[in-house]
Design a protein around this nucleic acid. Structure first.
Lengths: 152, 152
DNA sequence: AATAGAAATGGTATTCATTTTCATATATGG
DNA sequence: CCATATATGAAAATGAATACCATTTCTATT
């Protein structure tokens, strides 16, 4: 159970009153080891029997984002996906296009590169988005060989 | 005049028939030195008096994207913005959040990093998105100094 | 040039994530 | 317990992107 963790997060929100709904969203989020959409979170809280309004889900996610508690990526359809930030600093992820599973990757190289680019271009307040997708080893080997098996 | 350039691009599309509309979209795209949205392109062709249907604009952009003729980024609202790829290879950009102007940046470091990450994680067909935004020098100096004078 | 058929077009309707509105409910400090 | 600032959520609005499909227009072929 990760209730304690979720509690911590509720406190992490600024003006936050401790409400049942926010707790529910955070609880589900803590239990998700991977990126989830607002719609999924809504469905999950509903399934949990806690029923949080869609509006509140979106609101909570926006707050979490504003306070740097989550990382955000967009899927192919442009839908925003959220994932709790393990600890403070933002991270970049490699996401499998087949199963959707993601893993954080080491991106210091990129962070350094970003700084340098910004500086040499004379830009201030440089922000960056990096998204990696691919097909993970598991999915590749699980996939029926497209040409081999034979259609009948 | 960049008609020749646009012509070349029409030819670059695969099954492409040379139509007035596609020509118009490409023509406007060539004239745009920066990222534009589908909606903007639609408005621009209309302003040009050529009037291309929104559907066709989207279709053309999707094709251009599929054939690697344009780079795509998303703005804050999640809207897709398109920009012609100077020559073949995809590029990454540093976009000013204030004036919207963008410049291509040197990203070989990142390309190499991506390859390495993909390989070491055992992922196939790794694709990446990198977006940089900031405030360009021009905009910064044009902006009234927010903190410089000191709060009193 | 005429023609047939494939491809392209575009107005309209639809989808769907996200935001806004606003009336109601509920935390929380005093 | 009370007051009230804050949070909630149903319903409506927004808006980009897509689907539908009847109509138009290329283009190869004769």
């Amino acid at each position: 159970m990760s209730c304690g963790n979720a509690d911590l997060l509720v406190r992490a929100l600024p003006a936050a009153r401790r409400t049942r709904q926010r707790g529910a969203v955070l609880h589900v989020l803590v239990d998700c080891s991977d990126f989830v959409s607002a719609q999924q979170l809504h469905a999950l809280t509903t399934a949990d029997g806690i029923g949080v309004g869609l509006t509140t889900v979106y609101r909570t996610l926006r707050e979490l984002e504003a306070y740097g508690r989550v990382d955000v990526v967009r899927d192919d359809a442009g839908e925003r996906l959220y994932r709790l930030r393990p600890f403070g600093r933002h991270r970049h992820y490699l996401v499998c296009r087949s199963c959707g599973r993601s893993r954080a990757v080491d991106a210091e190289v990129v962070e350094a590169w970003v700084d340098e680019i910004g500086e040499s271009a004379g830009f201030d307040a440089v922000e960056h988005t990096v998204e990696l997708t691919g097909i993970c080893a598991t999915c590749r080997s699980a996939t029926p060989p497209l040409a081999g098996g034979g259609e009948q």
